[in-house]
Amino acid sequence: MREVCVIGGNRYFGKRVIARLIAAGDRVTVINRGSSAPPPGVIHLVADRDDEKSLEGVLGPRTFDVVIDQVCYTPRQAEIARRVFAGRTRRYVMTSTVEVYGYEDSAALVPEDAVDPRTVAVDLELPWDDPEFLDAHYGEGKRQAEAVFAAAGPAFPYVTVRVAHVLGGGDDFTGRLDHYTDRIRTGEPIAVPAVNHPATYIHVEEIADFLTWTAGAEFTGPVNAASHGTLTTEELCAAVAVHLPEGRTVFRSADAGDVSPFSFTRSYGMDNSRATKLGFTFGDVSNWLPRAVTETLRKAG
Score class of each variant (00 low, 15 high):
138 Y>V: 11
138 Y>T: 11
139 G>I: 09
139 G>H: 02
139 G>S: 06
141 G>L: 06
143 R>S: 04
145 A>E: 02
146 E>D: 12
153 G>P: 07
154 P>F: 00
154 P>G: 06
156 F>Q: 10
158 Y>E: 07
158 Y>S: 12
159 V>K: 00
160 T>F: 03
161 V>Q: 01
164 A>Q: 00
167 L>V: 11
167 L>N: 05
168 G>N: 06
168 G>F: 04
168 G>Y: 07
169 G>M: 08
170 G>H: 07
171 D>F: 02
176 R>V: 01
177 L>W: 13
177 L>N: 02
178 D>W: 14
178 D>E: 11
179 H>Q: 08
179 H>K: 12
181 T>L: 15
182 D>C: 07
183 R>G: 02
184 I>L: 11
185 R>H: 03
186 T>I: 10
187 G>S: 03
187 G>V: 09
188 E>S: 13
190 I>R: 02
191 A>K: 11
197 H>M: 12
197 H>K: 15
198 P>W: 05
198 P>D: 07
201 Y>W: 09
204 V>F: 06
205 E>R: 00
205 E>P: 00
206 E>F: 00
207 I>K: 01
207 I>T: 08
209 D>G: 12
211 L>N: 06
212 T>E: 09
212 T>A: 14
213 W>C: 11
214 T>D: 07
217 A>G: 14
217 A>E: 08
217 A>H: 04
219 F>L: 11
219 F>M: 12
220 T>R: 11
222 P>Y: 03
223 V>C: 10
225 A>T: 05
225 A>N: 03
226 A>W: 09
228 H>Y: 13
230 T>W: 01
230 T>G: 08
230 T>I: 08
230 T>V: 10
232 T>K: 14
232 T>R: 15
232 T>N: 13
233 T>H: 05
233 T>D: 04
236 L>I: 14
239 A>Y: 10
239 A>Q: 13
239 A>I: 12
239 A>K: 15
240 V>M: 11
241 A>L: 10
241 A>N: 01
249 T>I: 14
249 T>W: 10
250 V>W: 07
250 V>Y: 08
251 F>P: 03
253 S>A: 14
254 A>P: 10
255 D>Q: 14
256 A>Y: 12
256 A>T: 13
258 D>G: 06
259 V>C: 08
260 S>A: 12
263 S>C: 07
263 S>Q: 07
264 F>I: 09
264 F>R: 13
264 F>G: 00
264 F>D: 09
265 T>R: 10
266 R>A: 13
270 M>V: 10
273 S>T: 14
275 A>L: 08
275 A>I: 07
275 A>Y: 05
276 T>L: 12
277 K>V: 15
279 G>T: 04
279 G>Q: 04
282 F>Y: 07
283 G>Y: 00
283 G>Q: 04
284 D>R: 13
